[in-house]
Simulated scan of single mutants.
Amino acid sequence: MKDSRYPPDWPQLALDKKQSVSWVCERCGVQCLKPGDGKGLLKEERYRLRMAVHHCDYDPGNNSPSNLMALCSSCHLHYHRRQQGNISLGQLSLKFY
């Protein structure tokens, strides 16, 4: 079920943001995976290197470029830890085996 707080063009907005930073995390500088990359990596590595687009003010309706940050999964989780953000319980987690 898609979160109705996001605009219909969110997938394209998020892709544009990721492409604008060449798939490099704006917090830690790690090179994230582009769609289709990561063959041969463990599932956990692919997850860790997945890029997300973060709303700095935690409002998914505010998609101004200055409010968006492209982050790796670890950094995105860092921003949402202990925050009253727009994520549901369990939405952001890292699994290690």
Rank of each mutant, 00 (worst) to 15 (best):
Q12C: 03
F96A: 00
P65Y: 01
D9A: 07
P7N: 05
Q12H: 01
P35Y: 03
C25F: 04
D57E: 11
K17N: 07
L71Q: 04
Y6N: 01
R46C: 02
R81M: 10
S64F: 02
V24L: 07
L15R: 13
M69G: 02
H78K: 13
G40P: 09
K95W: 03
D9Q: 15
L42H: 00
D3V: 10
W10D: 06
Y47P: 00
G61E: 14
E45D: 15
L68M: 06
G85N: 11
S93A: 07
L92F: 07
H78L: 13
W23H: 06
L15H: 05
L68N: 04
S73W: 02
L15D: 13
Q83Y: 00
S20T: 08
S74R: 10
C32R: 05
L41A: 02
C32L: 07
C25T: 13
Q19N: 10
L77G: 04
V21T: 09
P65C: 06
P65V: 09
H76S: 07
H76V: 05
K39F: 03
D3L: 12
W23I: 08
K17E: 12
D59C: 03
N63E: 10
D59W: 00
D57L: 03
S22V: 10
S20D: 11
H76Y: 03
R82G: 02
G85S: 12
K39R: 12
W10T: 01
L33G: 02
Y97R: 10
L94D: 05
R5L: 11
N86E: 15
P8L: 08
K2Q: 08
Y6A: 03
K2M: 06
G29C: 10
N63V: 14
L33S: 07
K39P: 01
N67C: 04
L68W: 00
H78G: 05
G61P: 07
R50W: 01
N62F: 02
H55P: 04
N67P: 03
Q91L: 09
Q91G: 05
Q84D: 11
L41Y: 08
L15C: 06
K18Q: 13
G85A: 10
G61H: 01
M69K: 14
E45V: 01
G40W: 06
Y58L: 07
L15I: 10
K95F: 02
L49W: 02
P7S: 13
P35S: 13
K18P: 11
Q31E: 14
L49Y: 02
R82M: 06
Q31N: 09
S64I: 09
W23G: 06
S93R: 12
V21Y: 09
S66E: 15
G90P: 04
R81S: 13
Q31G: 01
C72Y: 01
G29F: 03
Q84M: 06
N67G: 01
Q12I: 11
G36T: 09
E45H: 02
G85I: 04
R48C: 01
K95S: 12
A52W: 08
S22D: 15
Q91R: 07
V30E: 15
N86R: 10
L41R: 14
V21E: 14
L71A: 05
M51E: 06
R48G: 00
W10K: 03
Q19T: 15
Q19D: 12
M1K: 03
H78T: 14
